[in-house]
């Protein structure tokens, strides 16, 4: 029984540590990446997996199903909401031309939004970000 507990503890600690490290890199990415769109990458992938791992670690360590269900919900909502918020921010950034276009290898949209906004909204056109 004690052996089983220590295996679970090591697993939980591993999940918590790796998850925390991934969240740290997400924060680092926000600082180091050159523009809004790249930063959103950091805000979705390592961040989501980091939270999932921390939740898994906590679920292993905490006893009782009540906490597990709650952690499962946190993980599910993280998976569903993180891409949506990242998408909304990226969409606005792209439309307001907050894009480091000098770093783009390919730009198939040519800087234009995919669906042009209605005419009454087109008075707002800042220059490219640098």
């Amino acid at each position: 029984m004690n052996d089983l507990d220590s295996v679970a503890d090591v697993l939980a600690a591993g999940c918590l540590l790796v998850g925390a490290l991934l969240c740290l890199t997400a924060g680092l990415g926000l600082v180091r990446f050159p523009d809004v769109l790249s930063r959103m990458h950091a805000g979705t992938k390592p961040q989501v997996l980091g939270v999932l791992l921390v939740m898994t670690g906590a679920a292993i360590r905490l006893h009782g199903w009540s906490a597990t269900w709650m952690l499962l919900l946190v993980g599910a909502f993280q998976l569903v909401t993180a891409p949506v918020s990242a998408h909304m921010v990226s969409r606005i950034a792209h439309r307001r031309r907050h894009v480091r276009r000098d770093l783009l290898l390919v730009d198939e949209l040519g800087g234009e939004p995919l669906t042009p906004p209605p005419d009454r909204l087109s008075g707002d056109q800042p220059a490219d970000a640098h």
Binding site: L22, T25, G29, S38, K45, L49, V106, L109
Partner: peptide
């Protein structure tokens, strides 16, 4: 996650991105 995490700690700033449809 591993790729993006590596990108954040990788030294150097020569990153090329792309926008595609």
């Amino acid at each position: 996650s591993a790729e993006v995490a590596w990108e954040t700690v990788r030294p150097g700033r020569d990153r090329r991105a792309a926008i595609v449809a």
